[in-house]
Design a protein around this nucleic acid. Structure first.
Length: 110
DNA sequence: GTTTTGACAGTAT
DNA sequence: AATACTGCCAAAA
């Protein structure tokens, strides 16, 4: 499996499976990947994979609904821009998880 | 081979 | 309710 473990591939697959206009949280992805407490691993993989692959890391935010970076960071502006471009409205660095949080059931119609 | 870091979450106080 | 600490996984140095 190359250098990537199943967890890595699963996380990457889940992230790549996030529909446009939706966002996922680290905990959610980690949980779906089989590591309910592996949120950090998810974030790390995200960063690592982003450098080698085009990954919608912007759709991955904290469980609190906030972006992963402070509003001062350049990456924050970029992410916010990308999210708004996806149709997601980012207010005060926060996204309405009640609206934009990706539900696994959305792609799995019963 | 070991240690440190890295874009968090959950639980406890 | 808010804050702090701990726990977790993986990759790079």
């Amino acid at each position: 499996m190359d250098t990537q473990t199943e967890f890595s591939k699963k996380v990457l697959a889940l992230i790549k499976a996030i529909p446009k206009g939706k966002v996922a949280t680290y905990g959610l992805i980690a949980k779906l990947a089989g590591k309910p407490r592996g949120a950090r691993g998810v974030g790390w993989l995200l960063h690592s994979c982003t450098k080698s692959h085009k990954l919608p890391w912007q759709r991955v935010i904290k469980s609190n609904g906030q972006l992963s970076f402070p509003a001062f960071s350049h990456a924050y502006s970029l992410q916010k821009n990308l999210l708004e471009r996806e149709g997601i409205l980012v207010l005060n660095g926060r996204v309405d998880l009640k609206i934009y949080l990706w539900n696994k059931e959305v792609r799995d119609p019963i």
